[in-house]
């Protein structure tokens, strides 16, 4: 499986970007970013709305072709070998993307088929994933009857079904109540522990980033403003600094500001679907 990888280094990172850039017309959404995420790390991508987090994730998950620069995911170039990258990644979009008109089991079965799992493996993998996410009992119910937390867990189950090397989550806990949020975060930690899954997560919740992530990168105006361990980032600003302070310091804006109409509508829509 290692043959044909595009990475040159002896111990390649799960994610490695070099001067990764994406423009939309005159606007540079992501501007020459360099990220290095070792295998098995939980990496948090922070930043105000419009900082370029979602565009970065879209490039890393092959949904968007970079304007310039390169990105290797699981050893493969996202622009040159997208099919190889897709086999090795899982993705939980910001919206609640599980299909409400299908049961949990059917949602997972669809993924199993699209990921080319052998017929013999499908059933066992699906029930294993349901159990791992604590959804076995709800498996036969339509997803539109699920709570927000259950839908998120289902989506994580769906994204990990094929045992991806790298899992991308775009604001997975948005709109969830604290209990549901903790369950989702615990499951992510379990995933890393059991399968050494590399996880890249974007979030607006600084406490969550602090508690979950090994390393954080703070994006601002398309650039990476700072990268480091949560504790180190806080220490640079003084003994009592919180991640909120770090955020404000590097993004030059309070968390309350920023975000255009589209972002907010999107977020509200997700939140209202979660009930």
């Amino acid at each position: 499986m290692d043959s044909g990888r595009d990475s040159q280094t002896a111990e390649p990172n799960a994610i490695e970007t070099i001067a990764l850039t994406r423009c939309f017309g005159d606007m540079t959404a992501v501007d020459h970013i360099d990220l290095r995420v070792p295998y098995g790390q939980i990496f948090g991508l922070l930043g105000p709305n419009g900082a370029g987090k979602s565009t970065t994730i879209k490039m890393l998950t092959t949904l968007l072709v970079p304007t310039s620069g390169t990105a290797l995911v699981a050893g493969f170039d996202v622009a040159k070998r997208p099919a190889e990258v897709r086999r090795r990644i899982g993705y939980v979009p910001q919206m609640l993307s599980a299909d409400g008109a299908l049961t949990g089991q059917e949602n997972l079965m669809l993924s199993a088929k699209l990921y080319g799992m052998a017929r013999a493996d499908r059933n066992s993998r699906v029930s294993e994933a349901l159990q791992f996410m604590g959804l076995s009992e709800a498996a036969g119910k339509l997803v539109k009857t699920y709570s927000g937390g259950m839908i998120r867990r289902l989506e994580v189950a769906q994204a990990m079904l094929h045992r991806p090397t790298v899992l991308f989550l775009d604001e997975p806990t948005i709109g969830l109540d604290p209990v549901a949020r903790h369950t989702v975060l615990d499951r992510l930690r379990d995933l890393r522990r059991d399968f050494n899954t590399t996880i890249l997560i974007t979030t607006h919740d600084m406490d969550e980033a602090d508690a979950l992530c090994d390393v954080l990168a703070l994006m601002h105006l398309g650039k990476v403003a700072v990268t480091g361990k949560p504790a180190d980032l806080k220490a640079t600003l003084g003994p009592d600094a919180t991640l909120d302070d770090v955020f404000v310091h590097y993004s030059g804006a309070s968390i309350e500001e920023g975000g255009n109409f589209h972002d907010i509508r999107q977020t509200r829509r997700t939140a209202s679907r979660l009930g």
């Binding site: 086999r87 993705y91 979009p93 993924s111 699209l114 990921y115």
Partner: peptide, 14 residues
């Protein structure tokens, strides 16, 4: 697309 289902399909190797 608005629900993110299309995103998920396109990230799959299908």
């Amino acid at each position: 697309r608005d629900l993110g289902i299309v995103h998920k399909l396109l990230v799959s190797p299908a």
